[in-house]
């Protein structure tokens, strides 16, 4: 079969040539930003300070940090665009459609998928909080079964920051200590929320593996890390941990977090799983996605 190039037919006569059927195509391009230049200037001054004056380096560091923040804000959570309107003739449009014909998701389904893809920090925080609560339940059960104490697990958590508590007796750790409760809660909540955010960001990328990865493998890897860390950094503390209970509490966290993230994003659905990788990974962002996000927020 003979194929012909499907180029814009009147592009050779300049795109804006008068044409009865010319329409306007809206094109998204990355918006201009000064931050790359400021970062380059900052890095240059940082380096130039080595051979001129420390104040130059200091100024460079200020520029570099400000530019890094500005740059991040320019691309996260969504890349900033500017919208450009291009005249497109009906022939151009028809040629492009004909040339790129193939299976495509229906517009409604695509929009639906994009709406699902609106990851929010909130879902990660919720997953972390719920997972942390499930983990706390298991840990408290451990304290109750082994030491008949409601406070043992949280005090043990606090002991990771109070080194003097590593040598404390079981009786001491079984008692109530406000300091221990606050420290333990703070550490537990902080780690839980961070891991929850990680779950919300990563689980949708490989949805088919999420239950195994987030519910089982992740907790096992985390346990291994915690085990080796405590063994080398705080061996006395490590000796007090019952690692079997620890694994169970981690799995409780993992499964709960996966469940909550799925409640929010529905990444276990077949429809979501059929989306291309870049959309699942949240790499593909555009105005439609942003407007979908605002719809969800409303």
């Amino acid at each position: 079969m003979q194929e012909h190039a499907s180029l814009p037919r009147d592009a050779a006569k300049n795109a804006a040539a008068p044409h009865g059927e010319t329409g306007i195509e809206s094109i998204h391009l990355p918006s201009p930003t000064v931050w790359p230049m400021v970062l380059a200037l900052g890095v240059t001054l940082l380096v130039a300070g080595l051979i001129t004056n420390a104040a130059i380096s200091l100024l460079g560091a200020v520029f570099a940090v400000a530019a890094s923040v500005g740059w991040f804000r320019n691309v996260l959570p969504h890349e900033r665009h500017e919208e450009v309107h291009a005249p497109v003739s009906a022939a151009e449009r028809a040629a492009a459609v004909a040339a790129s014909a193939g299976p495509r998701p229906a517009p409604a389904a695509a929009a639906h998928g994009q709406r699902r893809l609106t990851y929010s920090f909130l879902s990660g925080i919720e997953a972390g909080a719920a997972g942390g609560a499930a983990m706390a339940l298991v840990a408290t059960a451990f304290g109750m079964v082994r030491f008949h104490s409601l406070w043992y697990a949280i005090n043990l958590m606090a002991a990771s920051s109070f080194l003097s508590w590593s040598n404390a007796s079981d009786a001491f750790l079984s008692g109530f200590h406000l300091q221990g409760l606050l420290a333990g809660l703070l550490i537990h909540m902080l780690i839980s929320v961070l891991v929850g955010l990680l779950y919300a960001a990563t689980m949708p990328i490989f949805p088919r593996l999420s239950l195994v990865a987030g519910g089982i493998l992740g907790p096992l890897v985390w346990t291994g890390l915690a085990f080796s860390l405590t063994k080398s950094v705080a061996p006395l503390l490590g000796a007090r941990v019952d690692w079997l209970w620890f694994i169970v509490s981690q799995i409780a966290f993992g499964l709960t977090a996966v469940w909550i993230v799925n409640l929010r994003i529905r990444f276990l659905s077949a429809e979501f799983q059929s989306l291309p990788f870049d959309q699942r990974a949240g790499l593909h962002s555009n105005e439609a996605q942003r407007s979908a996000a605002s719809e969800v927020r409303q």
Partner: peptide, 22 residues
Amino acid sequence: LEWATSSPPPHYNFAVDPVVHS
């Protein structure tokens, strides 16, 4: 392909994504 668009090219290069066969 660079000769398929105007001179100088518009900011967006091509109003419609080109498709090539050779």
